[in-house]
């Protein structure tokens, strides 16, 4: 076979030109509609009767600039807490999910414990878990003095591992039973089957859902401020009181969005890649 290069026919060149024109047209239309939409939004906001006062008390550039260093400092604490909490959630969530898949009457207490745990912590508002863990548990005087950020991390891990355990469990159940049969018929034990065959497939299936929970946790990290930890939200609060202006809250909000964006983009990219693989490149 000679590697001859096929020269496209006039007809095909016409088709390609048409497709290019269509693409160019839809890009123009989307650009135009976006600009018009944004303009309408801005005009509507600016023509509202209270705009001048809102602008002054929420969007003051001087206050924003002056409060930025402190709020950024606080955000570093949020990042540290997020990192530790995410690791804790992964480990505890996976453990809980695995406990719930154990079979046999011997494991009933463990299964029941795991089920009760997820019921309890998925049902309780995070803020209440924070109060109980942050103010109640230290009162037991079983542990040395820990700072607010530590108890905040514990509360986040408790709540989010309950959600993540359910996500993992859904993934484990979505792996086709024939995979388990195949692994067990090779002589693998239940544990080996879970670790080497079921979990790798389950994790791949639920990665987008897990990343979504991660984004949710990223912003809920800001709630540790109720325990007195000086994170971005708390720092903003202090700056609000100092300047007698709400702009620092907006600054903190934007910083949280900026922190979440990379993860959101990666999630989108990963989900698109999964989808592309499943559709085998077809057009519909």
């Amino acid at each position: 076979m000679t590697p001859e290069v096929h020269a496209p026919s006039g007809l095909e060149l016409d088709r390609r030109a048409y497709r290019r024109r269509q693409t160019a047209r839809s890009v123009l239309v989307s650009l135009g509609s976006t600009v018009v939409f944004a303009a309408v939004l801005v005009l509507a906001l600016r023509s509202s009767p209270g705009w001048a006062r809102v602008q002054e008390s929420f969007l003051d550039p001087v206050v924003a600039w002056e409060s930025l260093p402190r709020v950024l400092d606080g955000l570093l604490l949020n990042l540290r807490v997020l990192f530790v909490a995410a690791l804790g959630v992964l480990v505890l969530g996976l453990l809980l999910a695995t406990l719930r898949t154990l079979r046999g009457p011997v494991f009933f207490p463990l299964r029941a414990l795991a089920a009760g745990y997820t019921d309890l912590f998925r049902g309780t508002p995070l803020i209440i878990v924070l109060y109980v863990v942050g103010f109640g548990v230290p009162g037991l005087e079983l542990f040395g003095r820990m700072d607010a950020a530590f108890w905040g991390t514990v509360a986040l891990v408790l709540t989010y591992s309950a959600y993540v355990a359910e996500v993992f469990r859904a993934g484990i159940e979505a792996v086709h039973p024939s995979q388990r049969l195949a692994a067990r018929s090779l002589g693998l034990t239940h544990g080996q089957t879970m670790r080497r065959v079921v979990l790798p497939q389950a994790v791949r299936k639920v990665t987008p859902a897990l990343m979504n929970d991660f984004v949710a946790m990223q912003k809920d990290v800001g709630l540790i401020s109720v325990l007195g930890a000086v994170d971005a939200v708390r720092a903003a609060q202090i700056e609000v009181a100092h300047h007698y202006d709400f702009t620092p809250y907006v600054v903190a909000g934007l910083l949280f969005v900026a922190m979440a964006l990379p993860v959101i983009r990666v999630t989108d990219w990963y989900t698109a890649r999964l989808r592309a693989r499943e559709q085998m490149g077809s057009l519909v």
């Binding site: 096929h6 496209p8 026919s9 007809l11 095909e12 077809s282 057009l283």
Partner: peptide, 13 residues
Amino acid sequence: RTVNLLEHIDDGQ
């Protein structure tokens, strides 16, 4: 699949 327009063709009709 090309007949069903589930796949773009690169030339021809």
